[in-house]
C-alpha cells in the first residue's frame, strides 16, 4: 500500500557551534521516528514546544534531508519526490510571509499557475468566507489574515495530503471554527489525508481520527483518538499496604503521584484486572488536554 506519508526509523540532528573555537554540538531534533498515515485519516500532531513537530513536518515535505532513515510521500522518498507527487500535497507553514503581492486574490491567481488542477473559484470562495479584503496589500494584513490566505491557497488544488503546521495559532475562535468547517464541508473526503499540528486540543478532538504525540523528539503515542479515549484512564488508589505492591506489578503506568494516602496514575491501554481491586477508588476518563498533561508530568 502506498501510504500518503510514511517514515521509517528516521533520526535527525542539527550541528552547530555558537563560536568558531567551540566544539560543534549535535542537537537531536528527531529520534527513531516510524509511522504511517492511512488514506482518509485526519491526524492531530501534538507535542510541547521543541518536541520536534516542525522538524517532523519538514522531513515529511522534503525540506530537510534526514541523517538517518527515510520519509516517503505516496511511496516516493520525500527528499527527491517528483513533480507529480508535489502536485498532490500542500503545506501551511506556521508563518506565511509573501508580502510582495498587491492583494490575496492576485496572489492566488499566480499561485494557481503551479498546479494542474487549480480551482480559482474555490479559493476565492474561501478567501471571501474568511473575510479577506480584495484590494488591500498583503503587508497591511494581520498575521491571522495571512494565515487564512495560506490555508485557502493550500486547498486550491485539492491536495490528497494536506500538512498544516499550527494553522490556527493566530486565529480567533470564530475563524478557527470556520477553518474546521471548510476542512470538513468543502475539502475532506475519504481520499484526503490531513496531518496538522496544533496546541488547541479541542480542535483536534473535533475533527481528528488519530493523534500522534511527540515527546523528547520521539513518538510517544500514535493511536485512534476514540480508542485512546476509551482506554486511557486516570486511576486513584487509596494507599492500603496492598496497593503499593499492586502498583509494582502494573506496566506502562504514567505520571504516578502520591499525595498523603492517595496514589494516582495513568494508563493509556486497558489492562486486565485493573479496576477490579477492592481498593480502587475511581477510574476517570480524560479529555485530550488532561491526557496530554498527564503524559508530560
Amino acid at each position: 500500500m502506498n501510504y500518503p506519508l510514511k517514515m521509517v526509523d528516521l533520526s535527525h540532528s542539527y550541528q552547530g557551534r555558537a563560536w568558531p573555537w567551540q566544539q560543534p554540538k549535535q542537537d537531536q531534533v528527531l529520534k527513531n521516528i516510524g509511522f504511517q498515515l492511512k488514506p482518509g485519516t485526519i491526524t492531530g500532531l501534538l507535542g510541547v514546544n521543541g518536541a520536534g513537530k516542525t522538524s517532523l513536518i519538514q522531513c515529511a515535505l522534503g525540506l530537510i534531508n534526514p541523517q538517518q532513515g527515510n520519509s516517503y510521500l505516496f511511496g516516493q522518498n520525500s527528499w527527491d519526490s517528483d513533480h507529480n507527487i508535489r502536485q498532490q500535497i500542500a503545506y501551511v507553514p506556521q508563518l506565511f510571509d509573501l508580502a510582495l503581492y498587491s492583494n490575496a486574490f492576485k496572489l492566488s491567481k499566480h499561485w494557481g499557475h503551479y498546479y494542474n488542477n487549480w480551482d480559482q473559484g474555490f479559493v476565492e470562495k474561501i478567501l471571501r468566507l474568511f473575510g479577506i479584503p480584495e484590494n488591500q496589500p498583503l503587508q497591511q494584513l494581520s498575521i491571522g489574515q495571512r494565515q487564512k490566505i495560506s490555508i485557502a491557497l493550500a486547498l486550491g488544488h485539492r491536495p490528497n495530503l494536506l500538512i498544516l503546521d499550527e494553522p490556527v495559532a493566530s486565529l480567533d475562535p470564530l475563524s478557527r471554527r470556520q477553518f474546521l468547517q471548510v476542512l470538513i464541508e468543502d475539502y475532506w473526503d475519504e481520499h484526503k489525508t490531513i496531518l496538522f499540528s496544533s496546541h488547541i486540543t479541542s480542535d483536534i478532538e473535533r475533527i481528528a481520527s488519530d493523534v500522534l504525540i511527540l515527546k523528547d523528539q520521539e513518538i510517544l503515542l500514535h493511536q485512534s483518538l476514540d480508542e485512546l479515549k476509551q482506554n486511557c484512564r486516570k486511576y486513584t488508589l487509596e494507599n492500603c499496604p496492598a496497593a503499593t505492591d499492586y502498583l509494582k506489578e502494573i506496566d506502562h503506568k504514567l505520571s504516578v503521584r502520591t499525595l498523603d494516602d492517595r496514589i494516582t496514575f495513568c494508563l493509556t491501554e486497558a489492562q486486565p484486572g485493573i479496576g477490579q481491586q477492592a481498593f480502587t477508588l475511581t477510574a476517570e476518563a480524560l479529555n485530550l488536554e488532561a491526557l496530554f498533561l498527564e503524559l508530560h508530568t
Binding site: S202, D226, K229, N287, E289
Partner: peptide
Amino acid sequence: NPNTGTPVFKQ
C-alpha cells in the same frame, strides 16, 4: 461535547 473523555461517536 468533543472536549470530554467520552469519544464523540459514543456520545
